[in-house]
Design a binder for these strands. Structure first.
Lengths: 344, 344
DNA sequence: ACCAGCATCTAAAGCGCTTTAAGCTGCGTC
DNA sequence: GACGCAGCTTAAAGCGCTTTAGATGCTGGT
């Protein structure tokens, strides 16, 4: 029954997936030739190529990535850690995919969640033999990242890292928030509050940016920071607190767009006109913020460019022989939309 | 310099990652023993365990997943296809992680995006040797899924599939939308519009659910379906169209929460009171819908339960010897919140 | 003294692929 | 006819791990 004589029964009824050897047997060639053909390496004759391709197709052959990764010394895999709840990360991932593909790398994703720490996510990526790690908005302490960076190229995206062992691609967050504050101040606002994003580095930078810009605009007395995090809920809570305080500012800057959306919705529900009574601004230029119904003034981080730079940084380390630390800081760009207006 | 005599220089300065052999050499044992210890297989003595563990730790050894997958016949990997832009998928993934972990499986994620089709995503998962595929809301035609299902266990989550070759875990969408319509009809609404979700199976089911429920409530004459898709933008566009038509319904049901949020925001901006003038309902019970500032009436799909069932279904096929098709249909649950109210 | 029986440990054969050196043609040359 | 040289193909040695059959060294029983 089995022409090749190599019985590979499985008992449970399913057929084992075809191997290189199976397609080789089918065309009477060695696995070496088949491998060559399938990877498009020059060498095999036209006739051989044809036959192999046809046979592989007929068998539904699909190379086993793991085996091939193991055999090549390289995996050509970039590990990406994302927060699956973040719309901004979603966008980055999208662009990372195309950027990686262009340079012949593949992506393996791992997500941290409420129940799954960064550490676990990174372990997973490493276990898959990622050659480099692209960490989106990591919150781990610099020391931990440094340790990681010494064994594997690490590219931190979106945040500053005080270490020469990890590359960084980010936008100048302080400056970005500064632009917003300047924009609002320029519209005549003086009482500008800020909804914080938490304790991590990114949040710290933005908060500092806010403080600095307020001082710079002579509004030191109006500095007002409300506790928050990166979720819509944070914006909502902050709005409630502002409303309850009886001292509504004329403008509120949020840590990110998600938080700003929360603000927007809560203010709207309370009957506060935006931007009539209060101006609101976010950060990230998420897809949502662009929607006409939110039309949120925000700051663009240019996801595509950051993704491209991140992949480039990884490839430079892996294939370009770069060993020197590299930090790429992109200029954030204010996107003035409909939620900010001159103070009345 | 190299005590063990096995020179593994790399030239580029980086040290190759330690292998089983390295830790074996360090404690003067065979790789077999080390492998046993590291996987917690009974056999090795207490003393040996200790020494191996210490050595592995000292070397920073990290097993190479690929190699071990290759050596075991099994990969213990479940491939998950997600839409990285969907908040509902994000929730599912979270629960899938914990469910998989409990039964000793790992997840590999692959995302389809605007620029990356389902086909590609699945290819990736298969290339990683996933033993089963969990597809979240696949839009591929049943025939394609069937073909896939014949070679690999496939679990489609969230949608009906007319095929006995793929397992299905979903909620009764028709019923879910029906519950919403009934709820609204019970509140006295007659003019209830629906914002569609597209052409795929899930969207079709929900649309049919709407139509059926309208008829069932004697509101056939009020059936009104607006074109849309699964994004916030769809809701926004639909709102604009409704406002422009001069014939505002008293209630609008959206395909999903994202669309509903778009509706909500656009109506709010236009000064239409929700639920005062118009009631709005969504579907999915996303994190966002639970927020006080949106407080959206919706239908819960119970992500956690679906995730658990999906993993169970996969494991039953893989380890339980099940070969018969299985469809698990969960009952959707209406979550009446603040965006729906009695018609005035 | 000998062997059964146990607790430990290891040699060696893969897993499905890549890669390199060597092999085999057949051809034109001198 | 020996030689060199393309052009194509393949044998075989891994990649880092798991796994199985079997080796080894004990114990205690007879």
């Amino acid at each position: 029954m089995d022409e090749s004589g190599s019985a590979r029964a499985r008992g449970n009824g399913t057929t084992p997936r075809p191997r290189l050897e199976d397609v080789a047997a089918r065309v009477g060639l060695s696995t070496a030739s088949v491998s060559l053909v399938l990877r498009g390496v020059p060498g095999p004759s036209e006739r051989t190529r044809d036959r192999v391709l046809k046979a592989a197709d007929a068998l539904g052959y699909r190379p086993d990535r793991n085996a091939s990764l193991l055999a090549r010394r390289r995996s050509r895999l970039l590990g990406v850690m994302v927060d699956i709840h973040s719309p901004f990360h979603a966008e980055l991932v999208e662009h990372l995919h195309t950027a990686a593909q262009q340079v012949g790398y593949d992506l393996v994703l791992s997500t941290q969640t409420r129940t799954r720490g960064e550490q676990t996510a990174v372990e997973t990526l490493l276990a898959f033999r990622s050659e480099a790690l692209i960490l989106l908005g990591p919150t781990a302490p610099a020391a931990a990242l440094t340790a990681l960076g010494r064994t594997t190229p690490v590219i931190a995206v979106g945040r500053r890292v005080a270490s020469v062992d990890v590359d960084v691609v980010r936008t100048a967050d302080e400056d970005g928030v500064g632009q917003i504050v300047d924009h609002l101040a320029g519209l005549g606002h003086r009482s500008i509050a800020y909804v914080d994003g938490g304790k991590d580095v990114i949040a710290t930078d933005r908060r500092c940016g806010y403080r600095a810009a307020m001082r710079h605009n002579g509004l030191e007395a109006h500095i007002r920071v409300l506790r928050g995090d990166s979720t819509e809920k944070a914006g909502e809570t902050a709005a409630r607190r502002l409303l309850g305080s009886g001292d509504l500012p004329t403008a509120v800057v949020a840590y990110n767009d998600q938080s700003a959306i929360g603000l927007l919705a809560a203010l709207g529900r309370a009957g506060i006109a935006v931007p009539g009574a209060v101006s609101v601004a976010g950060y990230d230029d998420d897809t949502l913020s662009r929607l006409g119904c939110f039309d949120l003034t925000t700051v663009s981080q240019n996801a595509e460019e950051q993704a491209r730079h991140a992949v480039t940084a990884a490839v430079e380390r892996l294939d370009g022989g770069r060993t020197a630390f590299r930090e790429i800081v992109l200029a954030p760009r204010l996107i003035a939309r409909g939620t900010t207006a001159a103070v009345s």
